[in-house]
């Protein structure tokens, strides 16, 4: 369940659309829910969102499974989403992915045993000129090198403690 504050945020989002078009709030509210409820969307969370927006649960499932940013399974606390599309590949993204795999001892799509890190490969994130890059939470980490990756991992470990 959302806090009072988040519920107000939901109301504010719904108010952006004409009356009766509250379904438009679905994607923003799912973002909010994912942030709030552990970084992923459980069936219960989605049903809750459906009830908030007065739409059918299937309408939520249809949308949540379409967009790649919604996680339908639990993920690590820090998700490394490394871009692997052409422009990043040209600048060595494959090496970065390999390096992270070795360093964290996980494959793509896997989470470390301590639940701290998940490695994902993603398609172009719109930072092609600053390649190789990855998304970490809300922000982009650009011009990646093995040293930078080390520093990022360290930074996350410190934050987690």
């Amino acid at each position: 369940m959302f806090s009072e504050e988040k519920l107000n945020k939901v109301k504010e989002i719904i108010a952006r659309y004409p009356a009766g078009k509250q379904k438009s709030a679905l994607i923003p509210v799912l973002h909010l829910a994912q942030e709030e409820f552990g970084g992923w969307l459980s069936a219960e969370t989605m049903d809750y969102v459906a009830s908030l927006l007065q739409i059918k649960p299937i309408e939520v499932y249809e949308v949540a499974t379409f967009y790649s940013m919604f996680n339908l399974k639990p993920v690590g606390k820090y998700v490394f989403e490394v871009c692997q599309t052409g422009p990043c590949m040209l600048r060595g993204s494959d090496n970065i992915i390999d390096y992270i795999k070795k360093k964290l001892d996980i494959g793509v799509g896997e989470t470390t045993k301590d639940g701290l890190f998940t490695l994902k490969t993603v398609e172009c994130l719109g930072a092609c000129g600053y390649a190789p890059m990855m998304q970490l939470g809300k922000h982009f980490r650009e011009h990646l090198t093995p040293e930078k990756v080390d520093a990022i991992i360290e930074e996350c470990r410190v934050k987690a403690n």
């Binding site: 952006r16 994607i27 923003p28 379409f66 919604f70």
Partner: peptide
Amino acid sequence: LEIYVQRGAGAY
């Protein structure tokens, strides 16, 4: 005029 910002969620 009102301007609103809406975020997508990962779909080219």
